[in-house]
Amino acid sequence: MTGSANREEAEVEQLLEFEAVSKKYGNKAALRDVSLSVGPGRIVGLLGSNGSGKTTLMRIAAGLDRPDSGTVRVLGHEPGRASKALISFMPDRPQFERWMTVGEALDFQRDFFADFDPDKSKRMLEFMKLSRGDKASSLSKGMQERLQLTLALSRRASLYLLDEPIGGVDPVARGHILDALVEFYEEDSSMIVSTHLIADIERIFDEVLMIKEGSLVLRQEVEQLRMDSGKSVDQLFKEVYAEC
């Protein structure tokens, strides 16, 4: 299965490609020589502990940070205007502005992104139990994450980058966000989900990337991994991180 997928990779256009990407913040290396590619129709788990480089990787893909060396391509484009139109990024902190209501935050997405889907956004609002009139900045943390996800998934983007969508919420809310991910995921697009909470979410992944101290340490099809090792992704993750 993986063999044939690898053979096809050369022909299928990759949604996201990193080639030998490195990034430093001051003296601290955030990414070291990372190469990866994500094809269409995949849900990819980007796994790593806090500070391992997950957010940096996503910010570079989203065009918010520039790599110090290496190349990044989004459907063949360098990060910039074209790539920003193709990517829907959910950052790990609020992307809406303090003054906005839920409705205004959605209108902002509608005004700037051609792939905004009003119908989908309406369904998501309902699913997330958000109302347009609520002030975004006075929502609880859990509700803010729901809004963030609504903003990201209301678009029909080619690539979704979700940075810790289940990070700061309680297990019940976590379940709800997971439901939304599966419910509103577009099958022909791809999604990269970063997380350090793996047990809850590993069943939605096709593939996982494990990143440790800025380096990519493992890239595997999830079912293959279970078949070969008889272990869950969560177990394997703990083993990889215990090594240090």
Binding site: R42, I43, D179, E187, I204
Partner: peptide, 17 residues
């Protein structure tokens, strides 16, 4: 695929397989 994926909260590709 879609129905089962959202019901079981599983990756649609896995259901496809």
């Amino acid at each position: 695929v879609r129905e089962l994926a959202s019901e079981l909260k599983i990756n649609p590709n896995t259901i496809q397989r």
